[in-house]
Design a protein around this nucleic acid. Sequence first.
RNA 1: GGGGUCGUGGGGUAGCCUGGACUAUCCUAUUGCGUUCGGGACGCAGUGACCUGAGUUCGAAUCUCAGCGACCCCA
Length: 475
Amino acid sequence: MEEKTDALPPIADFHAWYNEILRRAEIMDVRYPVKGLYVWYPYGFAIRKNTYNRLREILDVDHQETLFPLLIPDHEFMKEAEHIKGFEEEVYWVTRGGTSELDVKLALRPTSETSMYPMYALWIRSHADLPLKLYQVVNTFRYETKHTRPLIRLREITSFKEAHTVHCTWDDASAQVEEAVRLYTDFYSDLRVPVLISKRPDWDKFPGADYTIAVDTIMPDGRTLQIGTAHHLGTHFSKTFGIDYEDMNGEQQLAHQTCYGISERCIAAVISVHGDDTGLVLPPLVAPVQVVIIPIIIGKRGDEVMAAAETLKEELKAIGIRVELDSRDMRPGAKYYHWELRGVPLRLEIGPRDIDAGTIVAVDRFKQKQQIRSIREVPALLDEIQEAIAVRAEASMEEKIVICRTIEEIRSAVESGVAVVSWCGDRDCADRIEADTDASLLGTDLRGPHAAKVSGDACVICGKVGNAALVGRSY
RNA sequence: GGGGUCGUGGGGUAGCCUGGACUAUCCUAUUGCGUUCGGGACGCAGUGACCUGAGUUCGAAUCUCAGCGACCCCA
C-alpha cells in the first residue's frame, strides 16, 4: 500500500534497475532501431566527458593522443593469423562505394592494431624513436551475436581508449604492461571503483598476445565486468607488419609491443558499483552536476530567495564547482528526488529561514544533512562524499569475494560473487572447475590481499601446488 | 548455438484466442491557465499509439508468413 508504484526497481533486482536507471537518469537511450547501438543522452555524455578527461590526464603524462582511420584494408587486416582468427566472425565489412563494388574490402576496426601498425612500421627507424606511446579514443565495431547490453556489450563501442606502445626489448614491453596496470589502477581508484587484477588464462588472452593482464570489477549481482586489459604483444605484430629499428650497434631488431584499452564499460562500472535504490551515486570527480541548489520559494520572499540562490551559484562557479540552480516551478521534494536519481553528490537548500540565520542547508547523496555557513566549506564536503563512496564500494566488493578450498564452496560463492581458489595451472583442472561450478576461470596470478590467502596451497582439483586464481561468472 | 515470451501515445498496461461503427486506462509523459511550494502538490481544459512489410478478408491492433527489435531461460 505504501509502496510507490513509480519507484525505481531495487538495485537487488540488478537487471531491472540497470535498464531503468539508464533511461530515467538520461544516460543512454536504448530505442535506436539497430541492435547493439545506443544513443548517449547529454547527461550520460557529460559523465563520459568527465570520466575520459581524467583518463586523458593520466595518459597524457607520457603518452601522446592521436587518431587513425576507422577503415582498414583487407590485406592489412588479414596479416596476423592469430588476430584474424580472434576477430573474423565479428568484423563488419564495407564492400561497396555507392553502387560499385570495392576492389579492396574495408574492415570497420574491431580494434586498431592493423590500422596503426602499418604506419608504425614507417615511423619507427631507430632505437631513438623508442619507446613510442600513443593512444586514441575512438569507436570500434564488433558484430556481436550474443545478447547485447548498453555500455557493456555493444556492436559499436563508442568510447574505446586504446594505447599502443613500442619498445626495444621484451622486458621493456613487459615493464610497460605493468605501467599500464598501474595507470588503470589509478584511474579506477579516482572513480572509486574497486578492481581485481589478474592474468587471463592462456586460452583467453588477446588474439596475438604473449599474455594479457585484466582489470575486473564486480557488479551488484556478483558477476564480474572486465573493465580494462593490457596485452604484451611480443613480436607477433612487429614481425608481420615489419616494425623494426636499428639498434646502437647498427643492427636491425624487431620491436616489442604492448596495447591496452578501456571502453565505456568504465561508465557501466561507475553506475553499477556505486548506485543504490534511490538511483545513481556519482563521485564528484565525474558528476556532471557536483552541487545543485534548491531555492525554497515561500510566499512573498520569492525574489529574495532567488537572488540569494543566484549569488550562491556564482560563488560556487567562481571556485570551479559544477553547479546547477534548479529554479523550476516544482515542489522542492520533487527536485530532491530528481537530482538524487541523477546522482548529484551534494544539494544545497536555501530559503527564508536560512537567509535570516545566515546559513545554508547541505545534504549529501546519502541524505546526511548539515548546516554550513559558507560555500568555502563545499570542497571539503565533496571530498568527504568521495571518500564515503569509496568506503561503501570497497565494503560491498569485499562481501562478494570468497576464499574457497572446495568445489562446493566455489559453487556457492559464484552465486553472488567470485571465488578465489588455488589452481595448479593445468588446463584439465580448469576445465573441471568450470564444468563443476558453472562458472569460468577468469584469471590466474591474482594480485592483492586475497591472493596471499591461497597462494602456494593445493590446487582445488588435483592437489598439486597452485597459485591464486579467480573464478566467477562474467558479463 | 538452441528454446521461449513479447512488440499498443514519452513510460506502464488492457483489448487479440472468438476480426466489425474499437478503442480504453494508469503514470514521475506532454501543452495551456490558475492556485501552490522546507521531501514526490492540486484543479480545469488539451495533446498523443496499435513495430515494418506482404498475405487472407467486404473489413485486421486482433488471423497467417517474413523481417526488424526487446526480454527471459538453457548450452
